[in-house]
Amino acid sequence: MAESPTAGQPESVLDTIVQTSANSSLDPPTEAPGDFVSHYRITILSLVIALVGLVGNSIVLWLLGFRTRRSPFSVYILNLAAADALLLGSYFGLRTWRIVGDFDFVILGLLELCFLGLPYCVGLSLLAAISTECCLCVLFPLWYRSHRPKHTSAAVCAILWALHGLLWGVIVALYFLNKDHFYDLYFVLDLVQFSWFLLLTGVLGVSSLTLVLRVQCSSQRRRPPRLYLLVLLTVLVFLLCGLPWGIIHAVWSFSGFCIMPSELSSLLACVNSSANPFIYFFLGSQWRRRGREPLRVVLQRALGEEQPKGEPKLLTFLV
């Protein structure tokens, strides 16, 4: 592990990440045999999970982008699948490059910050937007149905991608155009990003708790809609597997203290981004039916676009 920066050793955040990348590369002479084997297994497992999740999210992208009719909620899921696919694809490519390629640690560290940080932040923002919309729909159904603009989902997704893309673009531009003051400005940008992270996490927690209470109350009268369960399971997986990655990065950036091995946090992040397609298809499947159903039908059912008679459609409040 790299040494933590002290007051007499003013190391930058990026330099610390670069040192960590150098020490965490799979170089047998610098690691004990047991540590090398453990590191190798976790990395390979992460790559396998990333590859499986990339395939699953690509299927969701294909179905929602070209095979189904767009709905407000499916627009969010489409963008969430795009963010997960970008994170998994970037992780697979950069990690493979780190293992087998000859690279510059500074450039690789910068690429990992951008191509992994961008989709992670966008995914968190989309989850917060999804849970907030469902929460508003549950609490104020009539008001929400009459006052919600038609293209809200597309506008929110476009704004989130543009804001986070601008932030990470500024970080890259500052590094190449103004290296002398890059580290001071990067600390300010990192502080802004951490504040946004705390805000979104709070919004996600409050809206998810509201949905849990709503599902608990409605389950006493009738079966809760699949859409509620889909949102709650997706948020739960993120809180268990995706949230630690952001917390670890924040703690490391401001204190230089590593509370969890980077390989383990990366593994959890890959699990989080890979689990969503399986949640969709699991909730959309009807195990009592015999025979196979098209994945498009299963996905539509999971999104609440196809429900049995007598069961309320949540999406009717979103159109």
Rank of each mutant, 00 (worst) to 15 (best):
L211S: 02
L267M: 11
F197P: 05
L204K: 02
S208Y: 04
V271G: 08
T234Y: 06
L200T: 05
L232M: 03
Y280T: 13
S218C: 03
P244E: 04
I279P: 09
L198F: 04
R292S: 15
Q216T: 05
F194N: 14
S219Y: 03
V206K: 00
V206A: 05
Q193P: 04
L232D: 02
V215W: 00
C258E: 15
V231Y: 00
V297Q: 14
L213A: 04
N276V: 15
T210A: 02
A269Y: 12
M260N: 04
G242Q: 05
Q216N: 03
C217V: 07
F194G: 08
R290F: 14
C217R: 07
C258D: 13
P225R: 00
V251C: 11
L229G: 01
F197M: 08
S255K: 08
I279F: 11
R223C: 05
V203W: 07
G205L: 11
V297G: 14
N276C: 15
V231G: 00
L268Q: 11
I259A: 07
W252I: 13
V231M: 03
T210Y: 01
L268Y: 13
W245D: 07
F282M: 13
V297S: 15
Q286N: 15
L227V: 04
V231I: 05
A269I: 10
Q193G: 12
R223Q: 03
E263N: 13
P261Q: 12
P294E: 11
A269V: 08
W196M: 12
G202K: 01
F194P: 08
W287T: 11
Q286E: 14
C258V: 15
V235S: 01
S219M: 01
